[in-house]
Design a protein around this nucleic acid. Structure first.
Length: 465
RNA sequence: GCUUCCUUAGCUCAGCCGGUUAGAGCAUCUGACUGUUAAUCAGAGGGUCCCUGGUUCGAGCCCAGGAGGGAGCGCCA
């Protein structure tokens, strides 16, 4: 087989028939009778399979014994118009080589559907299913679209550190990074604790929970930047919307205010959804048919309609006058619960919502204080079924106001001296936000659990694979 | 971390009020069938009813503890 192999995707779209081709891939099903066998082969390039036809004259049953669901094959043959109804082209096989057998008594994947919970337990094989193939292709397309969008809009991609020396980022519990021995680590002189001065970096270090603070450093020099990297949270979160390791996209823009920030967030999200609709039509159609009959309709709705913008204070008024009884009371000054956000997005407005100007006490220290001295220029973008998909703000650029907020919220100045110096030297208004990449994929694919939109999910009590 | 539900064949699940030998569909194996489309048809094999203990003449079913999983909530993106 010296002929170069062609992808299934390319073959299915080919107009040049009656030519010899080679395709490599994994067998999804084999069916037929004693005269002719049909083998559905998938190589991951498409949700669709190519049908390989093996006539019994050339391929006696014995020769196809190892061509079973899950096995890996190399096929050489003629690409021809299909005699059957389900496909336009197929391969009339001349040679079939089994590259890797898959004992049908043991291979866990079958032609018929499996539960997503079961597939989670065989994460090393689940990419071979239609569903995960579709999800992973969509995931790729969206990652590519993120870079495309920012590059087209003059942003620079900044690599912020994975290992961070500050534990003051204010976004939850962190994973410790250390090379000290876990048995008898060196202790401080007063024996009160571990002496991290002797650790690899000479101080306590952790995995990052956000690239934002370093992103601000870059924005104060390059103007428009974004990060796109892994993020780690050691929270004991057990929900369908949380992971311990996830990917986050964080643009940060000098001279942007909160309005600009909202414009960017909405335009960016619509671009990403539109990109998926354009580039992943087959995969999204499959997901629409299999999991969520309203998926495509919902995606088009988001692209075609403006997000609803209102302040936290206005949202509280709406919720207070709502007829619905909430489990948790709504009060100005407390954070909104999931049920409140869902009511606003799914019942009241029936569209994505951007909430702004939250009470200062429930938001992070770096958010810019409004003139009312009560609220900050924060924004949360809420999506149906997902909840918060973006959280962001205009940042406090005034050194003294920032210092006062840090003191009030017990954020240690000495660890963030460099962050404060951004305000000391050539400060500028700026704003940014964080988009949870997996939450975006959840929305675009219609999947229900965030553990099903990342190849190797990390969550409490689970780091298999 | 809290609340709640689930765990029966390789997979998805049924199993009545606690009662004799635990069932179905799919998968697998065998056979039939000249173009199938998650092929179809016939037959066969396949069980630590999650684990431990208890109640009972008798437990897949009731009770207690444990393990694993799901959903909701909290924290958040």
């Amino acid at each position: 087989m010296s002929l170069r192999r062609t992808s299934v995707q390319a073959l299915l779209g080919s107009q040049e028939l009656e030519r010899e081709v080679v395709v490599n891939g994994w067998v999804r099903t084999r069916r037929g009778n004693k005269y002719v066998q049909f083998i559905a082969v998938n190589d991951g390039s498409s949700i669709h399979n190519i049908q390989v036809v093996a006539d019994a004259e050339k391929f006696p049953e014995e020769s196809l014994k190892d061509v079973t669901t899950g096995s890996c094959v190399a096929v050489r043959g003629q690409l021809v118009a299909s005699q059957g109804k389900g496909q336009s082209v197929e391969i009339q096989a001349a040679e079939i080589t089994v590259l890797g057998k898959a004992d049908p008594e043991e291979y866990p994947l079958q032609k018929k559907g499996h539960s997503l919970e079961f597939l989670r337990e065989i994460a090393h094989l689940r990419p071979r299913t239609n569903t995960f193939g579709a999800v992973l292709r969509v995931r790729h397309a969206l990652a590519f679209a993120v870079h495309q969008y920012f590059n087209d809009h003059g942003f620079y991609y900044i690599h912020t550190p994975i290992i961070t020396g500050s534990d003051a980022e204010g976004a939850g519990q962190m994973f410790r990074v250390t090379t000290l021995p876990d048995q008898n680590p060196p202790l401080t002189e007063d024996k009160a604790g571990v002496d991290y001065k002797q650790d690899f970096f000479g101080k306590q270090t952790n995995l990052t929970v956000s690239g934002q603070l370093e992103g601000e450093v870059a924005a104060m020099a390059l103007g428009k930047v974004y990060t796109f990297g892994p993020t780690f949270r050691a929270e004991n979160s057990n929900t369908a919307r949380h992971l311990a390791e996830f990917w986050m996209i964080e643009p940060e823009v000098a001279f942007n205010d909160l309005q600009d920030n909202m414009e960017l967030a909405e335009d960016f999200l619509k671009y990403l959804v539109r990109y998926a609709l354009d580039k992943c039509a087959d995969d999204l159609q499959f997901l629409n048919d299999q999991y969520d009959k309203e998926l495509l309709e919902r995606l088009r709705f988001v692209v075609d309609n403006d997000f609803q913008r209102l302040t936290y204070t206005e949202a509280v008024e709406i919720l207070k006058s709502a007829k619905k009884k909430f489990e948790f009371p709504v009060d100005w000054g407390t954070d909104l619960q999931s049920e409140h956000e869902r009511y606003l997005v799914e019942k009241h407005f029936k569209k994505p919502v951007i909430l702004t100007d939250y009470p200062k006490d429930i938001k992070a220290f770096y958010m810019k204080l409004n003139d009312d001295d009560k609220t900050v220029r924060a924004m949360d973008v809420l999506f149906p079924g997902i909840g918060e998909i973006i959280g962001g703000s205009q940042r406090e650029e005034d050194l003294e106001k920032l210092r006062a907020r840090m003191a009030a919220m017990h954020v240690p100045e000495d660890e963030l001296w460099w962050y404060m110096e951004l305000r000391k030297f050539g400060t500028a208004p700026h704003a940014g936000f964080g988009l949870g990449f997996e939450r975006l994929i959840l929305f675009v694919t219609g999947m229900a659990n965030i553990r099903d939109v990342i190849p190797f999910p990390r969550f409490p009590k689970n780091a298999e694979f």
